[in-house]
């Protein structure tokens, strides 16, 4: 579904991505992990044709989208058909602040040719049905994130790019979002996401890439990576109060979220 080979990207003299190659098979959830500034957002921007790159090639949907190495590659010019198959969430993608939640989705439903009857279910799926008429500017940060997610998923894209989909969300909403992501995978979508939440990465992703210093430092199934590192004695696992606290949070805010997962 996504095929990247020898991809390089520099900002002035700073090399952010250095000769990176990887594949994302169709129908899987792949996570891109790494410290702040590692180039995760940069990678998503390149894959979605929002940013040019310096060398290598990028292919999405089996269509060649880049030139040969050293050719000075422009931001990929996605065809209209490709764009309609994409769902993209970036943290800086804004909302129409003065329009209601439904109004925001209506604009994009019309663009994507989605019937208006799908708007209410889309809001329901992210727990915003009660905010149907609420102006986007009156939403909390977490509610805004969820409205953005509803916008990403509404047209049932084949390939979904999510840049930190759960950042800023409370644990319950974050789990709800993870559940939607898993549902979309069941429906056959391919999902490429970044996250700083390792628990989420472990639970959701079929495969993760650790990006560090411009290179992929580690890749594979998250559980297998954990087992391997533990077996090799490179890590030592202790019980975590963070997990316990999160369980407490879920217990207080409602059991249904926990039970559904």
């Amino acid at each position: 579904m996504i095929h990247v080979s020898n991809l390089s990207k520099s900002f002035r003299d700073k090399r952010v991505l250095n000769n990176i190659s990887f594949d994302v098979p169709g129908g899987s959830i792949v996570g891109l992990l790494g410290p702040s500034g590692a180039g995760k957002t940069t990678m998503i921007k390149i894959l979605t044709g929002q940013l040019s790159y310096d060398g290598g090639s990028v292919r999405v949907f089996n269509e060649e989208g880049g030139a040969d190495e050293n050719a000075g590659t422009e931001a990929r010019n996605l065809t209209g058909r490709d764009k309609l198959r994409f769902g993209i969430l970036m943290d800086n993608f804004g909302l129409y602040e003065r329009l209601s939640c439904a109004g925001n989705l209506k604009v994009f439903a019309d663009i994507y040719g989605v019937p208006h009857s799908k708007i209410r279910p889309a809001l329901q799926s992210v727990g915003l049905e009660e905010a149907y008429r609420c102006s986007a500017m009156n939403l909390s940060k977490g509610m805004k994130s969820r409205l953005q997610l509803a916008r990403v998923f509404m047209h049932n894209p084949d390939i979904i790019f999510l840049d930190e989909p759960t950042s800023g969300l409370d644990p319950k909403s974050a789990r709800a979002v993870c559940r939607i992501i898993e549902e979309k995978k069941k429906e056959g979508a391919t999902i490429f996401l970044t996250t700083h939440n390792m628990e989420e990465a472990a639970r959701l992703c079929d495969k993760v890439f650790f990006l560090n210093n411009g290179k992929i430092a580690e890749e594979g199934n998250p559980i297998e990576i954990c087992r391997r590192y533990e077996a090799e004695g490179r890590i030592h696992i202790e019980p975590s109060y963070a997990d316990i606290l999160e369980a407490v949070f879920l217990d207080i805010t409602g059991k249904e979220a926990r039970e559904e997962i």
Partner: peptide, 13 residues
């Protein structure tokens, strides 16, 4: 400024 234009462009407007 709000980056909604980018969203429109990515939706093939």
């Amino acid at each position: 400024e709000k980056n909604t234009l980018r969203v429109l462009m990515m939706a093939n407007v």
